[in-house]
Nucleic acid binder design. Structure first.
Length: 602
DNA sequence: AGCACGCCGACT
DNA sequence: GTCGGCGTGCTC
């Protein structure tokens, strides 16, 4: 019996396979094919070759793009496993494993077949381990040993949060693994990406990349390393939404290989798994410098004509006189959060998102935080044409402005380059590697009350990690100015990790939040506000009927983005798997139309 | 996902 | 009358 029919999937949200007959040439599972689908020609991927089809009048495969598979049978199996956990089609998931240029009709620029090295599967019990190290320089040294050992068995992928980490690790490891080192990430040009992708399939390699890299894993993968596992960069913030930890965890289980997590402070989930004996722990906590929490009493800004707290001024003056190297961290970007007219009270808004525009002093214009909208401003109000425009709210640029007023002789440098005596930066600099190896004597963390007031259950843990990183960096002391000394973080910030994490885990358990309960945020968007709310309520009822704990719908922030409204519903469940499955079922039966749904699990 | 088709309310 | 938003169904 000759098998003449190919089952094909596309990079579309249709979770269905389509049959085409094979007219000529070699076509097999994993081949990219050029076919006509719905009056258009596009690239499909063969998931099966059979002899029968329930559909009559099949269309032919116009062309097999290559004469070898782009996707292996193992990758196909892994994509099917992912499909069980995520509300995406098999096609969408498989195309994540294909380099972007090859998602179009382009031939693979290689001479011989791409048949990869022998698939690797761990024999004994796989090992999940959290390696604790002060900073990434120290951890890379620890990974080096592990990489050397695992390269004997197969390839190793080292996932890094950002491009700058990849560059730094490349510098650090290229001497040790010059033959094995391969860089693969989506910042590369397509030619470079493709040549790396072809190379990583031959022999035992060390692959450096970011969150998308893991989807291109070679069959002989023997170990996954996730450096700085608590980094927010491992969350993919657009469709297809995923967290790299989950993908890496599933892949390591699927292949039964080692999974190494690295970081200075773990996520709460990892901490919980360490406590449960599911993850082993290497490395100890070291003594850090003291974080001093100072009561920043509220004072009258207008009377004092400054926003610089007198206490901060006093502390700064003292350390400036001692010629200390100072770092000041602040949580809000830009100059001001609002631009308004003093006469009519009009607040400048983004016309697409209906959120206040932020004022950027550097650019001298209003900017939307949520989309790319920019607006140049005159000195008179654009509505009443008479009132003066002022700004309110304190961003880091305004803070710098007032600090210069208070200390005219000091240069408050505000940039990513920390080379001056006094430096200003936003908290996010602590998620990068820019501060490693810099000499700082004293650090001030400002704006913590605002940071903690955000409606997000992760903020306390984030701030704890930021403060601990600062405490590990400075030679002398970290100051935090807060008006809210009752916050539980302040009494735990100088205690060992164990104390804070135990408390936080306890609170999350009480509040039934991750990692004890999992959350799915289901967001609907559409142009008609009232109808959208109806839709959101329908969705709410469907979720409720599938015996999930459901909350909402609530307006998203921003409520209106790029001309569309957004409502969110939160569903809760103890098991991430059941949650994912149930939400997926509901989303699938929900009528498709002009109201689009997005699902984020955590 | 994209697209065609058909329904219905709004508006010169 | 006809324009456009919206639901439905279909793609091998």
């Amino acid at each position: 019996m000759r098998r003449r029919i190919a089952r094909v999937v596309f990079n579309l949200g249709v979770d269905k396979e389509f049959d085409y007959y094979i007219s000529r040439g070699k076509v097999d599972v994993g081949f990219r094919v050029w076919v006509e689908f719905n009056h258009k020609r596009r690239v499909g991927l063969v998931t099966k070759v059979t002899s029968t089809s329930s559909v009559r009048n099949l269309k032919p495969i116009l062309e097999a793009i290559d004469n070898f598979p782009t996707i292996s049978k193992e990758h196909l199996k892994f994509a099917k496993l992912l499909k069980k956990n995520y509300p995406y089609s098999l096609g969408e998931l498989l195309f994540m494993m294909i380099p972007p240029p090859l998602r179009r009709k382009k031939r693979i620029p290689s001479t011989d077949s791409l048949s990869s090295a022998f698939p690797h599967r761990g024999r004994k019990e796989k090992n999940i381990c959290f390696i604790r190290g002060k900073n990434f320089l120290e951890r890379v040294k620890l990974y080096r040993k592990k990489i050397e050992e695992k390269l004997k068995e197969g390839s190793v992928i080292l996932c890094l949060p950002t491009f700058e980490y990849v560059e730094k690790v490349k510098e650090l490891l290229s001497n040790f693994f010059s033959k094995e080192l391969i860089i693969l990430h989506s910042y590369q040009r397509s030619k470079e990406f493709l040549s790396s992708w072809v190379k990583l399939k031959r022999g035992n390699k060390l692959i450096l990349g970011m969150r998308a890299t893991l989807f291109y894993y070679p069959l002989n993968l023997s170990c996954i390393i996730l450096e700085e596992e608590a980094s927010p960069y491992y969350f993919h913030p657009e469709k297809p939404y995923y967290h790299l930890f989950d993908i890496a965890y599933l892949l390591s289980k699927f292949k039964n290989i080692d999974f190494i997590l690295g970081g200075d402070y773990p996520t709460l989930n990892t901490f919980k798994m360490i406590k449960e004996g599911k993850i082993s722990l290497k490395g100890r906590e070291r003594k850090l410098k003291h974080v001093e929490v100072v009561r920043a009493k509220t004072f009258n800004y207008y009377k004092h004509k400054t926003i610089v707290n007198p206490l901060l001024k006093e502390l700064l003056r003292k350390h400036l006189e001692e010629k200390k190297r100072i770092l000041i961290l602040y949580s809000r970007k830009g100059f001001a959060s609002f631009i308004k007219c003093l006469k009519c009270g009009y607040i400048y808004m983004c016309p697409k998102c209906f959120t206040p525009l932020r004022y950027s002093l550097r650019e001298k214009r209003g900017e939307c935080l949520w989309c790319s909208y920019k607006e140049n401003l005159g000195s008179l109000c654009k509505i009443c044409n008479s009132g003066y425009i002022t700004t309110s709210g304190v961003g880091i640029e305004r803070l710098a402005y007032y600090l210069r007023q208070s200390f005219p002789e000091v240069e408050f440098s505000y940039s990513e380059e920390i080379n001056h005596l006094v430096n200003l930066a936003t908290y996010s600099i602590l998620d990068s590697s820019s501060l490693i190896g810099k000499d700082i004597d004293v650090a001030f963390l400002l704006g913590s009350d605002y940071f903690l007031s955000r409606i997000d259950f992760e903020t306390t843990l984030r701030l704890y990690i930021y403060l601990k990183r600062l405490a590990g960096l400075v030679k002398e002391k970290v100051y935090v100015l807060s008006e809210n000394l009752e916050h539980y973080l302040w009494e735990l910030v100088n205690k060992p990790l164990e104390a804070f994490y135990t408390k936080e885990v306890h609170l999350r358990k009480e509040a039934r939040l991750p990692p004890y309960q999992h959350l799915a945020k289901i967001t609907v968007r559409g142009k008609n506000r009232n109808r959208l709310l109806e839709k959101a309520n329908q969705l709410y009822n469907l979720l409720k009927n599938s015996s999930l704990e459901v909350f909402g719908p609530v307006q998203e922030f921003p409520f209106r983005l790029r001309g569309k409204f957004y409502y969110s519903i939160i569903a809760k469940s103890k098991s991430k798997l059941t949650l994912g499955k149930k939400v997926k079922e509901v989303v699938e039966v929900f009528p498709k139309g002009s109201y689009k749904i997005a699902v984020v699990l955590r």
